[in-house]
Each structure stands twice: as structure tokens, then as C-alpha cells.
Computed example of a mutant assay.
Amino acid sequence: MTERLAVAGGQDLPAGHHSLAWGVQASEAPGTLHVLAVTGGITVGPREGREILFGRNRPDVHVCVGEHDRRISRHQGALTHHGDKWWISTLGRLPLRLPGARLLFNQDEPIPLAAGYTPLFIRGSSGREHLLEVHVRAKDGEELLTQHGASTRPPNTWALSPAEKLALVVLGQRYLLHELYPNPLSWRQAAEHLNEIRPGEKWTHKKVEHLIVGVRDRLSRGGVAGLTREEVGEPIGNTLNHNLIRELMENTTLVPPDLGLLHD
């Protein structure tokens, strides 16, 4: 396999490395940057003017993302250290999507990255979302504003069967994509999507409902609040599934790389 660009003092993160949403080593220097795609990534320390490139062209970037998708630019974006912060900029034609559905275009000024975990998305061919995970090590004693699974300590995750996890990723994909105002899919929408990606498994809306209600009941018995009709009251709407997905993301049982299940 063709090698990526190297960085003096940098360390490679292998393909299959655990999600950066699960945290990084507390012993690292403040400002240490981790960048991870499905093909692997890199860890580098802060240094004025240091630039980390990411994009499709593996030999010319430090982190390769969307290698087989020609909609992704060869140089899609850059992370640059300046003034004690890491700054993100878009170099390619497609914008980067940040949490809260913010789009960063190539004509926009770079924006600073907050300490902690930030998932970045690039929409490629056939609606595929390419994920680039970024984590900036906080200064000692700095209070992290955690969101959607960012954590400084290993969290206690919930055990899920493969079928439960797949159904939950489909149901909660808008949350994993960090859309601004996400809602769970309906049972019927989830079943239709599951049949598209797993046509041999004969999913129905009743099968999806049975699996998800089973997870809600199990977590409720385990002490998670807001997962029963009695607690929430009428009208229910999507509240129970919304609370379930939030719980699973906040303790990193579900993390953005799980979106890869939608493309298996």
C-alpha cells in the first residue's frame, strides 16, 4: 500500500484504531492532535505553523480519506497550528460538515477547533458520508465541553447484539451524522433502510420495534431515566427513542464510525 506523508515526531494510528470519541491518553501534552479516518491516521504535537493535510491522494496527504471516491478532493482540507490553537480549513470543492450541521467551504476563513472530540463529515458519491475524527488534547485542568460521546475517562458502555446495534445505527443515523436538529427514523423508515443494506434479513417495522423496545426496557431496568411512557407522559412522539439514542451516544456505545455499518 502506498505510504502517506510523514510528519517529524508524528505517530501513525493504524486502520481499525478505536474511535477518538472514546478519548485519548491523559499523559499526552496539551494541544496534541489526533486525526483518524477508516484507513488510519496520525498523532502529532503542537508546533507553530505545523500543517496536517487530509484528502483522497494518499501519497500527498498525512491522513487519507475517501481514497476510492472521486468526489473527494485530493487535498480536501488542512489542520494548521497557529497561536496555540489548531485551525481547520477546507481546500477541496466539497465543504466539510462540522457538528451542528455547520458547513465550512474553501472560500471560508479557517476556524479554531475546541479541545476534545470533533467529527468532520464529507459527503461523497451516492450520498456516502466520509468521516474524519479529530481530537485535541485539552490543557491540564481545562474543563472540556463534552458532547455526543466526547469523554476524558473510559465510559461504561451498554452491551448490544449485532442486530440491535445495526438497527440502532439506522434508527439514529441523523444523530451520528451530527445534524442540527436530529430525529429518529420511524419504524417503517428504519425497516426500509435495513432491507436496502441487508436485503436477505427480511426486516419489518415490527421486527425493528421489537428490538429497540427490548433495548429501552433493558436500559431502563439498568437505571437509565426517560425510556418509559410512565416517565415521559403523553404525547410520546419520538421522545423515548430520542432519549435512548442520546444515552447510547453520550456513553459512546454508539459513535460516528458505526455509520460504516450502513455501507457494509
Rank of each mutant, 00 (worst) to 15 (best):
Thr2Cys: 04
Leu5Glu: 11
Ala6Ile: 07
Val7Ser: 13
Ala8Ser: 15
Leu13Gln: 01
Ala15Lys: 13
Ala15Cys: 03
Gly16Cys: 12
Ser19Phe: 06
Trp22Lys: 14
Gly23Ala: 12
Val24Leu: 13
Gln25Lys: 12
Glu28Leu: 15
Ala29Gly: 06
Ala29Cys: 08
Thr32Glu: 13
Leu33Ser: 06
Ala37Gln: 01
Ala37Glu: 01
Ala37Cys: 12
Val38Lys: 14
Pro46Ser: 06
Arg47Trp: 05
Gly49Asp: 09
Pro59Val: 07
Pro59Ile: 08
Asp60Pro: 01
Val61Gln: 06
Cys64Tyr: 01
Val65Ile: 15
Arg70Gln: 09
Gln76Met: 02
His82Lys: 11
Asp84Glu: 14
Ser89Leu: 02
Gly92Arg: 04
Leu98Ser: 12
Leu98Tyr: 03
Arg102Tyr: 11
Leu103Ala: 14
Asn106Arg: 15
Glu109Ser: 12
Ala114Leu: 11
Gly116Thr: 03
Thr118Cys: 02
Leu120Gly: 13
Gly124Ser: 04
Ser126Thr: 07
Glu129Cys: 07
Val136Asp: 07
Val136Glu: 03
Ala138Ser: 06
Lys139His: 07
Glu143Cys: 01
Thr146Pro: 00
Pro154Ile: 06
Pro154Leu: 13
Pro155Ile: 03
Thr157Asp: 07
Ala159Ser: 09
Leu160Cys: 04
Leu160Tyr: 04
Glu164Phe: 00
Leu166Gly: 04
Ala167Thr: 15
Val170His: 11
Val170Met: 11
Arg174Ser: 14
Tyr181Cys: 05
Pro182Asn: 08
Pro184Met: 11
Pro184Ile: 04
Ala190Met: 08
Ala191Glu: 12
Ala191Asn: 13
His193Lys: 14
Glu196His: 13
Glu196Met: 11
Ile197Pro: 13
Arg198Trp: 02
Glu201Ser: 13
Thr204Ala: 10
His205Tyr: 14
Lys206Tyr: 09
His210Asn: 12
Val213Asn: 15
Leu219Ala: 10
Gly222Gln: 12
Arg229Pro: 03
Glu230Ser: 12
Glu234Ser: 12
Asn238Cys: 11
Asn238Thr: 15
Glu247Leu: 05
Leu248Asn: 06
Thr253Ser: 03
Leu254Ile: 11
Val255His: 05
Val255Gly: 01
Pro256Val: 04
Pro256Leu: 05
Leu262Pro: 00
Leu262Ile: 04
His263Ala: 07
